[in-house]
Design a binder for these strands. Structure first.
Length: 491
RNA sequence: GGCGCCAUGGUCUAACGGUUAGGACACGGCUCUUUCAAGGCCGCGGCGGGGGUUCAACUCCCCCUGGCGCUACCA
């Protein structure tokens, strides 16, 4: 049994997106499951589309997901370099071999000519494809052009006869007629290889056993098969997981928003959520279950479970799942993760004191169960930090406008000030007693007090909230409300 | 247009010829409860259409329809 070697081969042409990372997760899970290697290879062959910072995104995304690679940039490995831009001589060597064998040839057609050719073909409703003009060039003409420095590409000479079949481990055998292919470029005029060529050369040299890449690559696989055959190499196993679709059913892309993988980190999703959720994006363990630890995913992952149809990205399910992991997570960790959001919102200072930290932790403890994502923290906890929180208008009208409320709050403030204790129990008792004095009960008491103390109608348990707020803040809030109410009564 | 892939509720998925078609999210209701969540319970809702094959089709085959992808000196 050969050792499983899989590679994640992103291009630094933009941010790492959900689709990339889904493939990375499949790669990683398969490698871990099989005890094989997970390799990172950077396919930086498109100099025009190179994006500054894209590389760092990829590294950061893998780091956040905790899917370390065994070989790749930075630490290297026995099959490096792992940047395709550093392997140009390798591609040149094999391209030359193909030319010498007669399986590839130089082409000097300008992009203008190519565009014109294509236009004509379209007008005549013919299939588009290179017309092999340069294949007719004599060796002398080719030499002369090359010597004169005429810009040239190298094209692979597709055998137009017959058909090419391959086995996709997700869908079974797939066959294409060769005549539908055209002589595609393998080396561009800038000397860089195209994806098609670089990837097959590297997959072979790096001894990749399984190529996992999205469904969109199925149509180009025959090209790859033809090149493997021309070079006398054994192709790897092809695995094409389904495309990930946006809510509108088209291929997930920038216009759908929220496809940048690290956006999910910034919005406050937990990495364990993303691992779990993404693993299920086109793969099913076949159980009536959807929550899995990473270890369980590794144990269960298999190519058999990869589904063969496109899947839509369901944000509401992601939210649900993150809520589940949020509730399970350690309070200290969640607090730590919430801090940047609280700081950003100006609720706590950049470098909080130990007291501020433990206050924050007590606050988060009350909302941890109610959070779907970390970024909700400021909104959920604002009133714990701001003395002058804004009263919810509807709630104000509903609960603070009643006649007995002013007296109720005065009564309660008095009781709390007078009491030596300040605990959940003593607070509950004080609120109940104040209510009894007003002949008000249950919600008639609780709601006005909640409004006065938190400025809003919903939140964690009232007595826990008051306890965390502390005596000073509670009194301050009560007095604030009392002030407003007595003023409006004077009017 | 050509080629290719695909098709179970709104969404994700189970079923690998014989099930009252199962589970999850979402949605609706009830419940718990000081509110909001969470939880528990209940419910809504599906095999795209047509032909075959078979004693028996969601499952196998064909056609149609529909969706998506590819069709670059981008990946």
């Amino acid at each position: 049994m050969e050792r499983v070697r899989v590679r994640f081969a992103p291009s630094p042409t933009g941010f790492a997106h959900i689709g990339n990372m889904r493939n990375a997760v499949f790669d990683w899970l398969l490698a871990k499951h099989a005890g094989g290697e997970f390799i990172l290879r950077i396919e930086d062959t498109d100099r025009a589309r190179y994006v500054e910072g894209a590389l760092e995104e990829i590294f950061e995304a893998l780091r956040w997901l905790e899917t370390p690679y065994d070989e790749g940039p930075v630490q290297g490995g026995p099959f490096g370099p792992y940047f395709q831009s550093e392997r140009l001589d390798i591609y040149a060597k094999y391209a030359k071999q193909l030319v010498e064998q007669g399986d590839a040839y130089y082409c000097f057609c300008t992009s203008e000519r190519l565009a014109e050719m294509r236009k004509g073909q379209e007008a005549r409703k013919e299939p588009t494809g290179y017309d092999r003009t340069c294949l007719k060039l004599s060796p002398e003409e080719v030499e002369a052009n090359l010597a004169a420095g005429v810009p040239a590409v190298i094209r692979f000479k597709v055998p137009y006869k017959g058909e090419t079949a391959f086995c996709d481990l997700v869908r079974g055998e797939i066959t294409f007629r060769n005549e539908l292919l055209d002589d595609f470029v393998i080396i561009k005029s800038d000397g860089y290889p195209t994806y098609h060529f670089a990837s097959i050369v590297d997959d072979h040299l790096m001894q990749i056993t399984h190529v996992i890449r999205s469904e969109e690559w199925i149509s180009s696989t025959p090209k790859h098969m033809l090149m493997y055959a021309a070079l006398g190499w054994n192709p790897p196993k092809w695995v094409h997981p389904p495309l990930i679709l946006g809510q509108d059913g088209s291929k997930l892309s920038k216009r759908h928003g929220a496809v940048r993988f690290l956006d999910y980190k910034e919005k406050g999703y937990l990495p364990e959520t993303m691992m779990n959720f993404i693993a299920l994006l086109g793969w099913s363990p076949g159980e009536d279950r959807e929550l899995f630890t990473t270890e369980e995913l590794i144990e269960r992952f298999s190519i058999d479970g990869i589904v063969n149809h496109p899947v839509k990205f369901d944000l509401s399910k992601l939210d649900w799942m993150n809520g589940v992991y949020m509730r399970q997570a350690d309070l200290g960790r969640i607090t730590e993760l919430c801090l940047p959001y609280l700081t950003e919102a100006g609720l706590i200072p950049e470098n909080p004191s130990p007291e501020e930290l433990s206050y924050a932790k007590a606050v988060i403890a009350l909302v941890q169960d109610r959070m779907k994502v970390l970024s909700e923290a400021p909104e959920l906890t604002e009133f714990f930090f701001r003395e002058d929180c804004r009263y919810d208008e509807k709630g104000m009208k509903k609960w603070l406008s009643r006649d007995y409320v002013l007296e109720l709050l005065r009564n309660l403030a008095g009781r709390i000030e007078a009491s030596a204790e300040f605990t959940i129990e003593s607070l509950e008792e004080a609120v109940r007693m104040a209510g009894e004095d007003m002949d008000a009960h249950g919600g008639q008491v609780i709601h006005p007090v909640r409004m006065a103390v938190t400025c809003r109608t919903a939140g964690p348990g009232l007595f826990e909230t008051m306890e965390v707020l502390g005596r000073a803040r509670v009194i301050q809030r009560l007095n604030r409300a009392i002030g407003i109410l007595s003023e409006s009564r004077d009017d």
